[in-house]
Design a protein around this nucleic acid. Structure first.
Length: 475
RNA sequence: UCCAGAGUAGCUCAAUGGUAGAGCAGCCGGCUGUUAACCGGCGGGUUGUAGGUUCGAGCCCUACCUCUGGAGCCA
């Protein structure tokens, strides 16, 4: 039986390249195949050398038996971890116990040697060390798994929404609205930093800048997403987000990816339903399609991972109003570093208590006091709360934040006044309420935080290939 | 930014204020259908940086740098 085509040979190659993954999953022996990859480890025997190569197509390596009678065998014996090689040979049942198939080489070409200074040894490395060599860590077992799962997760996100008739839209990365409440922004300018900027009445004259106004990298596509939802009904964005906060934690990055669905004709309850269905879908997809990578996370990252994911999958998220949450915290009798008080935001320790100790499952907290929420969230009839919701999960905390949006023009204008905002800058946003306004709602899900939750990896810097954090933009 | 902890060989870590060491990796040799192979040998250090205390500092003190964990901000 012929192996499925899954590689692209260079022009000189006569044989089609077979991926390691396909070779390992072969249903039969193969008289001739070509495999290319990087050496992970090599062991010598008297009459031959065992070379294990990995090409990133899966976690496992392919064991290649190189017989000492091959020409240039002396060179084979010098091959070190990290070397890129191209191997022709046949696929045969392995005599060893650890693998079903192995390859007997008829020809080995060294494409790219790696000398003894190659930083990845054939042993476990700490995550901290791997971060210092972010250009090579994709070749490590753990990071290879993370990147394959990251890819699959992105795919599952699109599948989820496409199956539900959500339209994938692209909101701008460069924006002029300093999206209220979402923290510090990265400024986008073409002014020469070596020269003083043009002034007008003693202030920087932004009309002379590239866009003729102050511009920033987006902190959220939500406001633009609302525009598109109020035309296409259900939309989602999936793109990079930038926040210039000086946050130094294991779950914050200056550049991260976010998924933001927005639904017209939808209220807070519908929003919470979607968030829960979405999170569960992604977990299920991972458990179905990333089994081999899951095994590695279970072994080396988090022994309770599978247990926790199945637990989350198998029962409804707890839903409590902010007021109920405060009540639970007060009645718990626990002493917290930050005392519980109605009207202030839940602290990390409070969120952790709710999700890790009290409910022991994801918790959706809704109807927060309107004073601690942004202007665009819909005011509830009680006059005190806003139709906001956060999904909290064990270990990570907030993974989803969203709300029903204020669709009533007069209420929205009142909110903007209270937040001391200049309504002129948001005339387009107000127009949505002037012309055919509808109830609508949406949320943001942190892509990397979801990836952390799914893989058990504890630091956001280890689920992004090239993390950007304060003081760090290497690679 | 704040609080706490840590910086010793390429990597992971030892070393009561008194001659800096091990495992792994590397190199050399041996054994072997091996599985992060195994056995023997060899090389490898400005102990994060700069000061200070001391007869003597990897260890004690001060400042700075870097990393880690936690907090705030949030996704």
């Amino acid at each position: 039986m012929r192996l499925a085509f899954s590689g692209y040979p260079t022009r000189q190659m006569i044989m089609q390249r077979t991926l390691v993954k396909d070779a390992l999953h072969s249903e039969s022996a193969q008289p001739a195949l070509l495999v290319q990859g990087w050496i992970r480890t090599r062991r010598d025997s008297k009459a031959f050398s065992f070379v294990e190569i990995n090409d990133g197509s899966c976690l496992k390596n392919l064991q290649i038996v190189v017989d000492a009678t091959l020409p240039d065998y002396a060179k084979i014996e010098q091959l070190t971890t990290g070397t890129a090689i191209s191997v022709e040979g046949k696929l045969v049942p392995s005599q060893g116990k650890e693998q079903k198939w192995e390859m007997v080489a008829t020809r080995v070409n060294v494409l790219g040697p790696a000398d003894q200074t190659y930083p990845l040894q054939k042993k476990g490395h700490t995550l901290e060390y791997l971060r210092e060599i972010a250009h090579l860590r994709p070749r490590s077992n753990l990071f290879g798994c993370v990147l394959r799962v990251r890819s699959r997760l992105a795919y599952a996100i699109h599948t989820f929404f496409q199956e539900r008739n959500f339209v994938y839209v692209h909101t701008p990365i460069i924006t002029s609205s300093d999206c209220e409440g979402a923290g510090e922004l990265f400024r986008v300018t073409c002014f020469d930093p070596a020269k003083p900027p043009p002034l007008l009445d003693g202030k920087v004259d932004h009309t002379k800048d590239f866009f003729g106004r102050p511009t920033y990298l987006t902190v959220s596509g939500q406001l633009e997403g609302e525009i598109l939802a109020c035309a296409l009904s259900n939309i989602y964005t999936f793109g990079p987000t930038f926040r210039a906060e000086n946050s130094n934690t294991s779950r914050h990055a200056s550049e991260f990816w976010m998924i933001e669905p927005e639904m017209a004709f939808c209220d807070l309850a519908g929003n919470m339903d979607l968030a829960e269905e979405f999170v569960k879908y992604l977990i299920q997809d991972f458990l179905t399609h990333c089994r081999e990578d899951l095994e590695l996370f279970l072994r080396f990252v988090d022994k309770e991972l599978l247990q926790r994911l199945e637990f989350v999958l198998n029962r409804p998220f707890k839903r409590v109003s902010y007021t109920e949450a405060i009540d639970i915290l007060v009645k718990s009798g626990k002493t917290f570093e930050f005392p519980i008080q109605y009207g202030v935001n839940l602290q990390s320790e409070h969120e952790r208590f709710l999700t890790e100790e009290y409910f022991k499952c994801p918790v959706t907290v809704f109807n927060y006091p309107k004073e601690i929420k942004p202007f665009y969230m819909r005011a509830n009839d009680d006059g005190k709360t806003a139709a906001a919701m956060d999904v909290l999960v064990p270990r990570i905390g907030e993974i989803v934040g969203g709300s029903q949006r204020e669709e009533r023009l007069d209420v929205l204008q009142e909110n903007m006044k209270r937040h001391k905002m200049n309504a002129e800058n948001y005339s387009w946003y107000l127009d949505l309420r002037r012309f055919g306004t509808v109830p609508h709602a949406g949320f943001g899900l942190g892509f990397e935080r979801m990836l952390m939750f799914i893989t058990g990896v504890g630091n956001i810097r280890d689920v992004i290939p090239f993390p950007r954090t304060p003081g760090h933009a290497e690679f």
